[in-house]
Design a binder for these strands. Structure first.
Lengths: 239, 239
DNA sequence: ATTGACGAATTGTTCAACAATCCCTCACTC
DNA sequence: GAGTGAGGGATTGTTGAACAATTCGTCAAT
């Protein structure tokens, strides 16, 4: 795909810019464009071209770039421009290190509160509900062959696990983390098979959550994360 | 020392070179101004006034505002301006929730790697070194009555614990978290006594780290965080 | 006391200009 | 032929001004 190709496609997204902050909306457009893989990692984003394509000024566009830079989707090199983030193998390892701490930590905190906080225990069914919904959505998407949806459902599942901590900051960190991970998935050869392989794991983890076996769920997630990381690292250093 | 060693060391110096962005420097100035308590939470930051005071244009200043907004030191209200973040009691609780997950998680990961990764175990002394330095600095500052330094040393200590995970993303998250926490400390009546009270805890935790008793350190930190949170929440709802 | 209109002040956004920097090309030297 | 400098074009960094959009305080009217 050439440069002018996706610039024309960007122009098609232009009507979506109708409300709230212009810079924020521009960031939204570019974010989905990046996380959905239409912008290859390493691509340089020209201020002039994109500004013209989206019909916003350079200043506003630069604000949007800063937003996405802080989400680590873009890297900003001084006097050279912004580029779609290209993750290294070390980045992949670091992302999984953080996932372990965040997801297992959320499970551990949930276990503690289940034991000590009755009001938290009472809400447990509704807290696990998003995880169940994500797992079932992944299952349904796989059966119907909607492979991209399998991937997003998988991410929703793990976001739901992080949400057990009931912490806005944990949720936001997890969101940014998963957005970065999408950059990794897009350079894989067969992301479909990758995500589908972990559906049974998710179902098993979900079962433990609903049975309030948080220790089991934490252990299962640890092995799941180890496996996913090594598989991803291997695929990444190959390609 | 081989050639590649030199090159790797040079790469570490790289951030010092690209530090020429005006917006970045403006953000630095405002950040220290905020975290050191010279700007009270809730204060509105006028684009015109601050731009004139610092001698930068509104556009550049707005870029700096965006940076600090993403670090949660400023809040941006559309069409109203930016304000120094005013944290609620819920924010304090959430901050400590995240601290528990990050710090205890880092300790737990360190324990796992100490058991499974010989090269990590070999480096353990140098990994703990920053924590020791921070603890001793806090001790010295307290004896000489330099109370603000006691606070920053305390933060360095916990940053050092998070750094045991050897994860850039964990370190950055911890940095932002502690910067936010400084906003809380400044509204306290007697931050000196608050920080000084936890010096013995830090020494005790440090001892466990050096003895490679990570389980003990994790437990001690959990109780430390619980105590600090409840003390802070109490002081916060009072004032 | 409440409402609503008016106006001043501030932010949101764009535009144009210039300085600083990067990157490519092309001679030039050895 | 490889390496080294010297232009020169293109892009980013930053500024200042301008105008639209919005907020907020004021004040008159009810």
């Amino acid at each position: 795909m050439t440069t002018t190709d996706w610039l024309e496609e960007l122009q098609a997204e232009r009507p979506r810019l109708g409300r709230a902050s212009t810079a924020g909306r521009v960031a939204d457009v570019l974010r989905t464009r990046i996380t959905e893989g239409h912008l290859a990692p390493g691509t340089r984003l020209s201020e002039e071209d994109i500004g013209a394509a989206l019909g916003v000024s350079r200043n506003t566009l630069r604000e949007a770039f800063r937003l996405l830079g802080h989400e680590r989707l873009l890297v900003h090199e001084f006097n050279r421009g912004v580029f779609v983030r290209k993750l290294t193998v070390d980045d992949v390892r670091d992302l999984y290190q953080l996932r372990r701490i965040l997801e297992c930590g959320a499970a551990r905190r949930a276990a503690e509160r289940l034991a000590s906080d009755p009001s938290y225990a009472d809400r447990w069914a509704t807290l696990v509900e998003p995880a169940r919904a994500a797992a079932e959505e992944g299952q349904a998407a796989a059966e119907e062959g909607r492979w991209v949806d399998v991937g997003t459902a998988n991410m929703h599942f793990h976001q739901a696990i992080a949400a057990l901590a009931e912490s806005p900051r944990v949720a936001e960190a997890m969101g940014h983390l998963l957005a970065e991970l999408r950059l990794v998935f897009h350079v894989m050869a067969a992301p479909q098979a990758f995500h589908e392989a972990y559906l049974p794991d998710n179902r098993r983890i979900l079962g433990m959550l609903e049975a309030r076996d948080l220790a089991g769920a934490e252990a299962a997630m640890a092995t799941y994360l180890d496996a996913a990381e090594s598989q991803l690292v291997e695929a990444y250093s190959a390609g």
